[in-house]
């Protein structure tokens, strides 16, 4: 790519919007999954009895079961949220920038 076209893209308001909003979005989601996962690991290390609590009085099923399944589901949902936003808004911005380059 030529230096001139790089500078043109960098100056494009939509490029700046793309970079800013995507960075904020991916960092937020990364922080979320780190908090969820290491929250879980630290609970296991420091307060495992929390996960051993029954879900309701007299039940054998413990709180740890739905929590574990929820973490698996949340990993899937978070990637889905990212794809939805990226394939919609971010790709629209990207193709607008690409068109202006031609």
């Amino acid at each position: 790519m030529q230096k001139a076209s790089i500078d043109a893209i960098k100056a494009h308001p939509k490029y700046q919007e793309l970079v800013r909003s995507r960075r904020r979005f991916s960092l937020t989601l990364t922080a979320l999954i780190l908090i969820i996962y290491f929250g879980f690991i630290l609970t296991i290390a420091f307060a495992p009895s929390l996960l051993a609590t029954p879900v309701s009085a007299g039940a054998v099923t413990t709180l740890g079961m739905p929590v574990g399944i929820l973490i698996i589901v949340s990993a899937f949902i978070l990637t889905g949220v990212y794809v939805y936003r990226a394939n919609g808004r971010f790709d629209a911005l990207t193709s607008a920038i690409q068109e202006d380059q031609q």
């Binding site: 991916s26 960092l27 989601l29 740890g64 990993a75 990637t79 990212y82």
Partner: peptide, 19 residues
């Protein structure tokens, strides 16, 4: 339950790869 802990560890790398 310990088995589930390992499964979760193997799975959570994927969102990081994505983001």
């Amino acid at each position: 339950y310990d088995g589930l802990i390992y499964s979760i560890g193997f799975l959570v790398g994927w969102p990081v790869i994505m983001f």
